[in-house]
Design a protein around this nucleic acid. Structure first.
Lengths: 197, 197
DNA sequence: TTAGAAACTTGATCTATGGTAAGATATACT
DNA sequence: AGTATATCTTACCATAGATCAAGTTTCTAA
């Protein structure tokens, strides 16, 4: 909770008084590795701020294969916009890849924050635009780049994540099989210059 | 311009007086098919509202192949967030796929609109969330679905666009070659039930 | 500390989609 | 209307990455 307060202070002009006004709407929750916070096709109004650990959102296809939409580490947010913003069933699952601590955020918090914190709207708009930019870059990679190029760019963009995630999970994010990722990495070890670009 | 006013009136509480205060910051521009409005790696602060016609944003890969990020038809917006919001060089090109008319929107308009129209921030947040939802769905399809499934879901989601776009352009949006799309469509003509799901 | 389960690697095939090239239609311009 | 130009189709072959199957290594929990 303290971490979330610090985060908001670094991003907005929020005061301690304002934060305590809002904090009634917040809860912290401990999540163990593997624990599911949100199930696709159900309804919920909750969004999560990660104060510790690592979560992901993902879909399951008809063959039961997982496809990772997003990761969230410390100071990141995760949830399902479809249910939170549009009150429709969730598109995604959310679960924890490490033992984590999250701050549970409801819609009332968001509404209040807009009222109470003068520049919250501005901050939020920036954050949403940033999210769009990231996902569009990912689309562009999925359309234009080979598996190896996508892996290289992932490692360059999120070097720390590369160390915290299993290859299975990285492969699922990149849209390839773990076997293919293993072969790609073997090639990169043998030809390190291929990873430079 | 009138179309943009109508659009804003349908989405926000804007009054005619408020609109005329803002309209100093707006210009309309005629764009011919093929005309480029925005070039990747350059800087600009302009965003576009489409009052008539059809635009797209896209990237070029090293082999000079186009990869379409987004379409915008009547009442849609298009531009490059990287340059408009973050003042960095544009990631994308924007050009017209049909003779079009756009309203050119600058940052000052956005700032003023937030001040002048009480619920503009709310509207804008919804729009951004909606955009994120759309792109995330697209990522999920790119990760999980075959070319044929992506084509079917594209046609189901944007039936009108399917009729206005060339196959070359649809293929580029789906991340496949026009030849592959041609083969997919042949199969669908022969086995129409495959397009039902 | 060790058994069992994950995670990772490797090899042998298979398959969806790409590349190339040629011909067939459609569209647009004079 | 007629030619040029873009768009679409088809066939044949190539390839990135998937799938399957069998190890090997690494983690984990009793």
């Amino acid at each position: 909770m303290e971490i979330f307060r610090q985060y908001l202070k670094s991003k907005t002009s929020i005061t301690d008084e304002q934060f305590s006004m809002l904090s009634n709407e917040l809860k912290t929750r401990q999540v163990s590795r593997g624990e599911i916070l949100l199930i696709a096709n159900t309804r919920t109004k909750l969004f999560f701020f990660v104060s510790k650990g690592l979560l992901r959102s993902y879909t399951l296809d008809k063959q039961g294969k997982e496809h990772i939409i997003q990761f969230a580490v410390e100071n990141g947010f995760i949830g399902d916009r479809n249910s939170v913003v549009f009150e429709e069933p969730a598109q995604f699952y959310v679960d924890a890849l490490e033992d984590s601590e999250v701050v549970v955020i409801n819609n009332k918090f968001m509404d209040l924050a807009h009222v109470v914190i003068p520049d919250f709207g501005l901050y939020n708009t920036l954050r949403l635009n940033d999210t769009i930019r990231d996902i569009q870059r990912r689309v562009s990679l999925l359309l234009a780049a080979t598996a190896e190029e996508r892996y290289n760019s992932f490692i360059k963009l999120y070097p720390d994540l590369g160390l915290r995630l299993s290859q299975l999970v990285i492969a699922s994010y990149l849209g390839i099989t773990p076997e293919s990722l293993s072969r790609i990495r073997r090639n990169l070890v043998r030809n390190p210059e291929r990873g430079m670009k």
